[in-house]
């Protein structure tokens, strides 16, 4: 079973709404308090990236429950400038976080997996997943 809900990111306060959605879904799925915080932080980073670099976009949160696994899937989509060198932005030390560990490498660590699809001039879709263990 899959439940999907989404938040449009237009103003900075929409980041809060996206966080709330992620936390509620993570909690409902049975994630512990620490993983809830991790998922929320990851969503926050993705939403912030949209707000800062693409201006507008959408954060979708999917709750996936099957017989074999339970997981949360976060999809961030925007029609922003796109990422020229995807490999570079997931490298440590590159991100604009200035050594704060945030940015996309941070999201990658907070979640179990992250896939980036981006076309320069068209936009970016980032899909990050975290399984319930």
């Amino acid at each position: 079973m899959t439940f999907k809900s989404s938040v449009e990111i237009i103003t900075e306060w929409d980041i809060v709404a996206a966080r709330q959605l992620g936390r509620d879904e993570a909690k409902a799925l049975g994630f512990g308090i620490v993983d809830q915080a991790r998922i929320t932080t990851a969503i926050s980073e993705l939403a912030r990236n949209i707000y800062l670099y693409a201006r507008v976009g959408v954060i979708e949160v999917e709750k996936v429950e099957t017989d074999v696994e339970k997981k949360i899937v976060v999809i961030a989509t925007d029609q922003g400038p796109g990422i020229k060198d995807v490999r570079q932005v997931i490298e440590d030390g590159y991100s604009t976080s200035g050594g704060l560990g945030a940015g996309l490498p941070g999201v990658n660590r907070l979640m179990d997996s992250m896939v980036i699809q981006s076309v320069v001039g068209e936009g970016t879709t980032i899909r990050a997943e975290k399984r319930l263990r």
Binding site: V34, A37, R38, T40, D92, L100, G101, A102, R109, L110
Partner: peptide, 24 residues
């Protein structure tokens, strides 16, 4: 404590980045 966990998630991220940079 839940509040502190939220705060520490960011420290955790910085900490892990630091570790990975040390390895590099």
């Amino acid at each position: 404590y839940d509040f502190l966990i939220e705060v520490m998630v960011h420290y955790g991220m910085a900490h892990r980045e630091h570790q990975s940079l040390l390895q590099i």
